[in-house]
Simulated scan of single mutants.
Amino acid sequence: MAVTIREVASAAGVSVSTVSRVYTAPDQVQAQTLRRVLDAADRLGYTPNPAARSLRGGRTGSLGLIIPDIANPFFPPIVKAMQARARRQGYTVLAADTDERESDESETIAAVSKQVDGLILWASTLGEERLRDLAERIPLVLVNRHVPGLPELRVSLGAGIAQAAEHLRAYGHTRCAFVDCSRPEMERGKAIREAFEPHGLSLVELGPYEPRFETGLHAATLVASGQATAVVAHNDLVALGVLHQLAQLGVRVPGDVSVIGIDDTLLAATSTPSLTTIRISADEIATQAADLLVDTIAGRGSGRLVEIGSRLVPRASTGPAPR
């Protein structure tokens, strides 16, 4: 039998109306009381009824998360962690992907926005005016996409890229390649080049391509025929394609070429060789994005910028430059 709101109120020592406010207007509840109610709800396994809540307050009790590609192993842990975070605040998460296409993103937004109280858009391909129009109709948080005045969660690769440059230079590398799968406004290649040059590392940019495993296969062939002794890939998925194709070509990693990814997905630690990568915390992204959207729904997130950092995780795919 489902746990009722009255049972939560009794276990927490508060009124039923207080429990209701915890899930519908948490900003109106004292922090100590809020924590006591949420802890009681967790112990009892209580889940708010989104349908009833919608009828009472005109809300759905759901948050929308629209990501570029659910097949990318970087995103499932984020979805899982965001579900856990949202649940503690009385929400569920509805996730959908756009397959990296602007037309699919527009259609997905139109369908999902009818079923949620707010949206998180990851690296949106939509124009600035369309995003502003959307933000006037529904609470909106952008991830890795800047539109002045709109709430944004930004993943900063600065620290991780700088550590990667120091790491490669310490191993004696001077000629590097970057497999670029970013859109022009992301300027990831420029950021890597500016971090590498002070360390005496030249950078050849390959692409831009789509951020897929197959891209790594293609790029690895170009790397093998060139002079670069180290490769930085747009993400782990592309880096795994590089590793696979280099092995097929008889190129030793890291004996002949060192490889670095970005994201630190589960596959990075289990690949052969294990992949050196720039780590971005899925839990931190999920927590901060969910909190920012809930604040935006409550009218407290306007124009806020939250930044997430990164760091290098050295593994077996990097080593001394060949002599």
Rank of each mutant, 00 (worst) to 15 (best):
G250D: 05
D256F: 07
L243D: 07
T265A: 04
S225N: 13
D236M: 09
V231M: 01
V232S: 13
G241N: 07
A239D: 07
I260M: 13
G226D: 05
V257E: 07
N235H: 14
A228S: 15
A220G: 01
T265N: 10
L222F: 11
L222C: 06
G261R: 02
V238H: 07
G255K: 03
V259C: 11
H234I: 08
S258M: 13
G216N: 04
V231C: 05
L249I: 06
A233Y: 08
T265M: 00
A228T: 10
V223I: 10
S258L: 06
L243E: 03
A233S: 14
L243N: 11
A230H: 02
L240V: 11
T229S: 11
G261W: 04
A224H: 05
I260E: 14
L222Y: 13
A228D: 13
D236V: 08
A233T: 09
L249H: 02
G250Y: 02
A224C: 12
T221G: 13
P254M: 14
A228I: 11
A239H: 04
T265C: 03
V253N: 02
A247Q: 11
P254E: 12
G261V: 06
G241I: 05
V223K: 00
D236N: 02
R252M: 07
I260G: 03
D256Q: 13
L217S: 09
G261P: 10
R252W: 05
V223H: 11
H234V: 09
T229P: 02
I262F: 15
L246E: 03
V251H: 05
V231L: 08
D236S: 08
D264T: 07
D263T: 08
V251A: 04
V257R: 05
V257S: 09
V253M: 11
A219H: 09
I262L: 14
A228N: 04
V232N: 12
L249G: 03
G216K: 07
R252C: 07
G261I: 11
T221L: 12
I262H: 14
V253F: 04
V253P: 00
P254K: 14
G255H: 04
L217I: 11
G250A: 10
D264N: 14
A233D: 14
L237R: 15
Q248E: 15
G261D: 15
S258C: 12
G250W: 01
G226S: 09
V238Y: 00
V223D: 02
I260N: 14
V231A: 06
D264V: 03
L237T: 15
V253S: 08
P254Y: 15
I262K: 00
V257Q: 09
L246V: 11
V259D: 04
T229G: 13
Q245M: 05
A230R: 04
D263H: 09
A247W: 06
L246C: 11
A219S: 05
L217A: 12
L246Q: 08
V242I: 03
Q248H: 12
P254G: 12
L249K: 01
L240P: 05
L249M: 01
V257T: 13
G255I: 09
G216E: 00
L222K: 04
D263G: 08
V223F: 05
G241K: 04
V251Y: 06
Q248R: 07
